[in-house]
Design a protein around this nucleic acid. Structure first.
Length: 186
DNA sequence: CCCTGATTCGC
DNA sequence: GCGAATCAGG
C-alpha cells in the first residue's frame, strides 16, 4: 500500500482526532503503526495537542529555533465518524455461579447490570481465551465463567484493562457505579 | 506484558 | 519517501 492522497487525508483526520497510530494503521490497513508514525513525522504534523519536549541526550546541536508552526486552514468540524455498536441479540445471559470461599470477583446480580454491559460481557465470553486457573497471569482477565463444579468453567483470559484484574467488558460489570441499589430492606 | 509516540537508518 | 527496528515512557 502506498500513501495515496486519500489515505493521507484519512491519516491527517484521524491523527487530529486524537486517534492513536495503531488505530489509524488498523483503519487504513496495509500499514503498521510505525508506518503511520513515520508518515506523521514526515508530514510534519507531529504534535497534535502539545507534545512534551523530547530531551534527547544525543549529540544534536541545537538547530535554529523554529518559529514556524504548522497551519490548519481546514476548519473541519462536526465529525462523528463511528461509534461503537453492540448489536448483541443477547441470547442467554450467562451466569457464573461462584461458590463462596473463592477469592474471586463477586458476581453482580444480573438484574442490576446495564443491558449494555451484560451484552458486552456475553460477547466477550464468546471470544474468551478460556484459561484455566493456573494459566492466569497478571494481564489476563480473571473473570470466571461457568460453574466451577463442572467442566464448563474457565476464566475470561482476555487482555486486562491496565491495572484492573479484568478486561474492559468485565470491568464494566465488576465496578458498578452503584446506582439503583436502594433495595436495602432484606 | 500490554500499549503509546519518537527516532534512526537501510532501502 | 518509506517503515522496521529500536528507543523511551506509561
Amino acid at each position: 500500500m502506498s500513501w495515496t492522497d486519500e489515505r493521507v487525508e484519512t491519516l491527517k483526520r484521524m491523527w487530529n482526532e486524537g486517534q492513536s497510530a495503531s488505530q489509524i494503521a488498523k483503519e487504513l490497513g496495509g500499514v503498521t503503526r510505525n508506518a503511520v508514525i513515520g508518515k506523521v513525522h514526515r508530514l510534519g504534523l507531529s504534535n497534535r495537542a502539545g507534545v512534551a519536549p523530547t530531551p534527547q541526550p544525543t549529540a544534536k546541536p541545537a538547530e535554529a529555533p523554529a518559529t514556524e508552526a504548522a497551519a490548519q486552514p481546514e476548519p473541519e468540524a462536526t465529525d462523528q465518524p463511528e461509534q461503537e455498536k453492540a448489536p448483541i441479540p443477547m441470547s442467554q445471559a450467562r451466569r457464573a455461579i461462584i461458590p463462596a470461599g473463592q477469592p474471586l470477583p463477586p458476581q453482580p446480580s444480573a438484574n442490576e447490570i446495564s443491558p449494555e454491559a451484560l451484552a458486552k460481557v456475553s460477547e466477550v465470553e464468546k471470544g474468551a481465551k478460556k484459561l484455566s486457573l493456573m494459566e492466569l497471569t497478571e494481564r489476563t482477565c480473571k473473570w470466571p465463567v461457568g460453574d466451577p463444579a463442572t467442566d464448563d468453567f474457565w476464566f475470561c483470559g482476555l487482555p486486562v484493562q491496565q491495572g484492573k484484574p479484568y478486561c474492559e467488558a468485565h470491568v464494566g460489570v465488576a465496578f458498578q457505579p452503584m446506582s439503583s441499589r436502594r433495595d436495602r430492606r432484606r
